[in-house]
C-alpha cells in the first residue's frame, strides 16, 4: 500500500476532463481521467488513498448514479462533484450521498485543490479506520464463543453479576472471561471495549428484552 494519493477525474466532456487532469497534474497530483462512470468502475484501481472529481451530468451513467454504485462497493471513495449547473435538489442528493464538496464550473484551482485535499484526507481516515477495524476483527476472531457472548453483554452495559445470571454461571467465571476479552481485543478500559464493539457492530440483547 503506497501512501501517494490518486485523483480520478470522471467527466464526459473531453476538454474539461483534459484541463482538470492537467491542472491537477500541474499541482503535483497523480491523476487518472475517465470519460464515463462505467469506464471508471471497470478500472482496477490501486489501493492507496484516492478521491474522485466527478461530473454530475454525463451521458450514460450520471455522477449521482456512480456515487451510489461506489458506496455500494467495499471501497467507497470521497467524491468532489463538479457541475456546469447545479440546483439545490441535486446538491442535496450529492451531499447526502457523502460527497466532500459540490463545485460549480468554472471553479477556482484553489477551491478544487482544497476540496481534493479534504477528500484525500477523508479517504486516508477511512483507510486507517479500515486498517484498525481489520485488527479488531483479527482480535475478535480469536475470542471463544463464550468470550464473544461475554464481550457482547459487557459492551451492552451489563454488570458482571448480570452477565453471570444471563449466562447461568458464576460472577467469578465472568471476571475471568472478561479479562481475556480485554486482553485479546487490546482494550485498555471498559470504554475502549465498548468503542471496539461499536466499530465491530457487535450488539447484545438486553435481558429485559428477552421474550
Amino acid at each position: 500500500m503506497t501512501d501517494e494519493p490518486t485523483v480520478f477525474v470522471v467527466d464526459d466532456d473531453p476538454s474539461v476532463r483534459r484541463s482538470v487532469v492537467r491542472l491537477l497534474e500541474s499541482a503535483g497530483l497523480r491523476v487518472e481521467g475517465f470519460d464515463s462512470g462505467e469506464a471508471f468502475l471497470e478500472h482496477r484501481r490501486r489501493t492507496g488513498p484516492a478521491c474522485v472529481v466527478l461530473d454530475v451530468r454525463m451521458s450514460g451513467m450520471s455522477g449521482l448514479e456512480l456515487q451510489r454504485r461506489l458506496s455500494a462497493t467495499g471501497r467507497p471513495m470521497a467524491i468532489v462533484f463538479i457541475t456546469g449547473h447545479g440546483d439545490v435538489p441535486m446538491s442535496v442528493a450529492a451531499m447526502k450521498g457523502g460527497a466532500v464538496d459540490f463545485l460549480l464550473k468554472p471553479f477556482d484551482d484553489e477551491a478544487l485543490l482544497a476540496a481534493i485535499d479534504r477528500a484525500i484526507g477523508r479517504d486516508r481516515a477511512w483507510l486507517l479506520e479500515q486498517q484498525e477495524l481489520a485488527v479488531l476483527r483479527v482480535g475478535y476472531d480469536r475470542l471463544t464463543p463464550r468470550e464473544q457472548q461475554v464481550f457482547a453483554l459487557v459492551a451492552a452495559g451489563l454488570l458482571n453479576k448480570q452477565v453471570a445470571a444471563q449466562l447461568g454461571t458464576s460472577e467469578k467465571t465472568i471476571k475471568v472471561h472478561r479479562a481475556r476479552v480485554m486482553a485479546k481485543m487490546e482494550a485498555l478500559s471498559l470504554a475502549d471495549l465498548v468503542r471496539h464493539a461499536e466499530r465491530l457492530q457487535i450488539t447484545a440483547r438486553h435481558p429485559d428484552w428477552r421474550a
Binding site: D13, S15, V16, R18, S19, V20, R22, L23, I82, G84, H85, L104, K105, P106, F107, D108, D109, L112
Partner: peptide, 11 residues
C-alpha cells in the same frame, strides 16, 4: 456554457 469556461479556467 460552463463546460468550456471551466476548461478555460482550469487550463
Amino acid at each position: 456554457l460552463n463546460q468550456p469556461l471551466a476548461a478555460i479556467l482550469s487550463n
